[in-house]
Simulated scan of single mutants.
Amino acid sequence: MCLMDAALISATRTAAVSALAIRTLAPRPVRTLGLVGAGRQAQAHLELLLRSEPELVSVRVHDVRPRTAEEFAAGFADYGIPVTAVADPRAAVEGADAVVTATTATADDGYLAPDWLSPDAVVAHVSLDDLLPETVLAAACLVVDDWDLISADPRRLFGRMIRAGRLTAPDADPAAPPGPAASSTGHSQARRADEKGKTMTRTATRPSSTVAKSEASRR
């Protein structure tokens, strides 16, 4: 029998998929990282990204509890790169090559605006509701591994945008007017209902699967 810490496994699994997305999609090299949230998920992400992104030289972290962010930064003091607690989320993500949101944000809590992000930033949207809809629409593309999962969730941002006709399915006819999303499974590229865009990623976890996530994007 093997007993393992489920919280550790979940956090590591999530961080591994985000790290793969950042390695694949982010501009090279990744030198700056912005973290929003300073809990267990953020810790797992930073521990892994410090190994997978060897040219990382600066990390900024924000949490709604300033002391938590400060303690988080202090916990990485011996890792060889500066980890700085900042006062607001914009200060954490602005100008960063890669961004990870790992918060407790829920519907209607979105705050991350498109002009906060550098044109080539990749965002691992772990906590699912941090982005504003206009930030999603500013992405060049979105890649999900389970379109059914994303489109079936009426509470989370992507599901709400699909129901509003603002995102369309990977196999939608580009000439057709925006409408309700069709289903598609497997690694798929979702089409925005509008065709404007800059760079972004997005991540969503399926609890029943080790690697079920939505990833995203770059132009």
Rank of each mutant, 00 (worst) to 15 (best):
T185Y: 06
D78T: 14
G197P: 00
D115V: 01
A16D: 10
D78I: 00
T84I: 15
G80N: 05
E55W: 04
L3E: 11
A204H: 07
E71A: 12
G159I: 08
I22C: 06
L157H: 04
S18L: 02
S151T: 11
M161W: 06
D5N: 15
P133S: 03
L48Q: 14
L142P: 01
R28E: 13
A169K: 00
E134H: 05
P180L: 15
S208I: 01
P170D: 03
W147M: 13
S10W: 01
L149E: 10
E195D: 14
E94D: 10
T106Q: 14
D63F: 04
P180N: 04
V64W: 01
V86K: 06
A85S: 12
D145C: 09
G110K: 04
A216C: 10
D146Y: 08
P174G: 07
A19S: 15
P82N: 08
A92I: 09
E71S: 11
A181K: 00
E71D: 14
A69W: 01
L3H: 10
A204C: 11
A169C: 10
L117G: 05
E215L: 14
R155G: 13
P82Y: 07
G80R: 00
S184D: 09
T185R: 15
I162H: 08
P82H: 08
P119W: 02
A77E: 13
T32H: 11
A152V: 00
A140M: 00
W116H: 04
Q41M: 14
P29Q: 07
T203R: 02
I81F: 06
A216E: 06
E71V: 08
S217D: 09
R31I: 07
P180V: 11
E71I: 01
E55D: 15
R156N: 12
T84V: 15
A73K: 01
S188L: 09
L3D: 09
A102F: 07
G159L: 07
M200A: 14
A169W: 09
T205E: 05
S58H: 15
A85H: 03
A74K: 07
A15W: 07
R166E: 14
A21T: 14
A69G: 12
D115L: 02
G75T: 05
D109A: 12
P170E: 03
V100P: 04
A105I: 01
L56C: 07
G75Q: 03
R23P: 00
A172W: 06
P66F: 03
R90Q: 11
R191G: 02
L112G: 02
E94R: 07
R156M: 11
A139F: 15
M161P: 00
R90S: 02
T68G: 00
L20G: 09
H125W: 04
A92C: 05
A212C: 08
D146K: 02
D146F: 07
A172G: 04
E215H: 10
Q41H: 11
L25S: 05
M200Q: 03
E215W: 11
S217Y: 10
P180C: 00
R156L: 14
I162Y: 09
L167A: 02
E71M: 09
A6E: 13
F76N: 11
G80S: 06
V123K: 02
S127E: 06
F72A: 08
S58V: 00
A138S: 15
W147C: 04
Y79K: 14
A7L: 12
L149Q: 10
S188R: 15
A124N: 02
H62G: 05
D78G: 12
T106F: 06
R67H: 11
P154S: 09
S217C: 12
G165V: 05
L56W: 04
R13N: 14
S118P: 03
